[in-house]
């Protein structure tokens, strides 16, 4: 498979996980260049961008899922960034649909995206003043009890 050649163009670890799946682990600084190389390599579609909060390691893992429709391979690009002041570079120029995924990253995880003019604008949430909600330390039950009144039901004994 040509995918093995990826090792030569990407700074990071490339692992063929199974048929049609490649795992690529890169450093924060190499995300954009890695995605650039991957796009040239034929990964012409961006499927999604998201993050995983590894709170115990005090890291966010930013995940880009790419697809090459010629080779029919999904590449999962992962980069760990510190949880304190997390920041990444935008990839909007490479993949236009990255914009809203990146906006979502800022909104749901508090990861700032440099170069994305919409980063920080509200997308799915409105008047949100709490922790970014998809972080592991955001306690949704606590939030709900603080912001909404519980419904009191009268005793029903039938």
């Amino acid at each position: 498979m040509e995918i093995e050649r990826l090792n030569q163009v990407i700074r990071g670890t490339v692992e063929v996980k199974r048929k049609q799946r490649v795992d690529i682990i890169v450093d924060n600084a190499d995300i954009v260049s890695a995605l650039h190389s991957l796009k040239l390599f034929g990964f012409n579609q961006l499927t999604l961008v998201t993050a995983v909060d590894w709170i115990e390691e005090q890291q966010f893992e930013v995940v880009y899922v790419l697809y090459s429709n010629a080779q029919k391979v999904v590449a999962i690009v992962k980069a760990r960034i510190p949880r304190e002041n997390p920041e990444i570079e935008t990839i909007e120029d490479l993949y236009p649909n990255a914009n809203k995924y990146e906006v979502e990253l800022t909104e749901m995880f508090g990861i700032k995206v440099r170069g994305n003019p919409d980063s920080g604008k509200p997308f799915l949430l409105e008047n949100w003043h709490d922790l970014p909600p998809m972080r592991k330390d955001f306690d949704s039950i606590k939030y709900a009890t603080e912001h909404y009144e519980a419904r009191h039901r009268k005793e029903n004994n039938d």
């Binding site: 012409n44 579609q45 499927t47 429709n69 649909n97």
Partner: peptide, 9 residues
């Protein structure tokens, strides 16, 4: 080309 670049499926 547009469709592919935007992740349309």
């Amino acid at each position: 080309e547009e469709a592919l670049s935007m992740g349309v499926t």
